[in-house]
């Protein structure tokens, strides 16, 4: 293991230990924070009793819906915009300004339009993720080396064959980055919306527990969501590294 990795593990473990001590000794009051060990045991009980299943399914389904739509729409939009320079010229500045807009402010509008169901949070998750996919698709297509396209012509390849056999694999690393970001963003959009105002889902349950002063459940849920998202993000990161290593990049 690298020295930096060892140090990182040590620092993180030290931080958790410190919080544990502060909570156990009462330096941090119980109604502010419960010790990390209790968060974990409380989460274990919730999982064991199967109390999270309904909300977890609901959140994950919403994330999947937002993510799928974002990947499909983002990829198609990227490919179309890339093919039409005039549209590209108009869209480019908007894409670079996209993430400066606080997308969550549209949430109240969608609630009034569609009602307090899962549709508004799926739309917010989609809106958060779709631009990342579009931007990275454009980026990937931009970076296909011209000499590879020339090579395809030397092999007398048609448009479809060039697209599938040369352009797509050449752009693949960037498309993967787009997907990775889209996953993180759709989680942020969906869980954030649930937390602000919704009728169910993991984010909603955190808010519910907070309003009922149920710290044990609240901290267990926070631990669960953050753990879940981090595991998903890190798995994608590791997969990406494996793919890149297979191409010989370190």
């Amino acid at each position: 293991m690298k020295l930096a990795t060892k140090l990182r593990v040590a620092v993180l473990m030290g931080a958790v230990g410190l919080v544990e001590t502060l909570c156990q000794t009462g330096a941090i009051a119980r109604f502010t924070m419960i010790p990390p060990s209790e968060m974990a045991s409380s989460l274990w009980r919730l999982l064991y009793a199967g109390k999270l299943q309904t909300d977890m399914t609901r959140t994950l389904l919403a994330v999947c819906a937002a993510l799928t739509a974002a990947i499909v729409v983002g990829f198609v939009a990227g490919a179309v915009v890339h093919a039409i320079p005039r549209v590209r010229r108009t869209i480019d500045p908007l894409l670079s300004a996209y993430y400066s807009v606080p997308v969550f402010v549209f949430y109240p509008m969608f609630i009034v339009l569609f009602g307090l169901n899962d549709i508004p949070k799926i739309i917010i998750g989609f809106l958060y993720a779709v631009a990342a996919m579009t931007i990275n698709t454009l980026n990937g297509l931009d970076r296909v080396a011209p000499v590879l396209l020339k090579t395809a012509r030397v092999f007398r390849m048609g448009r479809a064959a060039t697209g599938f056999r040369v352009v797509l694999p050449a752009a693949a690393p960037y498309l993967f980055t787009g997907v990775k970001l889209a996953v993180a963003y759709s989680f942020i959009g969906v869980v954030g919306s649930e937390f602000i105002l919704s009728s169910g889902g993991l984010g909603y349950q955190i808010g519910f527990a907070y309003h009922n002063f149920d710290n044990r459940t609240m901290y267990a849920l926070i631990l669960f969501i953050l753990g879940l998202v981090m595991i998903v993000n890190m798995s994608l990161h590791a997969w990406e590294k494996m793919l890149m290593a297979r191409r010989g990049y370190q």
Binding site: I188, V191, G192, F195, A209, Y210, I222, V229, N233
Partner: peptide, 12 residues
Amino acid sequence: SIPKVTLYPIIL
């Protein structure tokens, strides 16, 4: 890249 919004109750 995590939904930081879930940390808000802790801050509150």
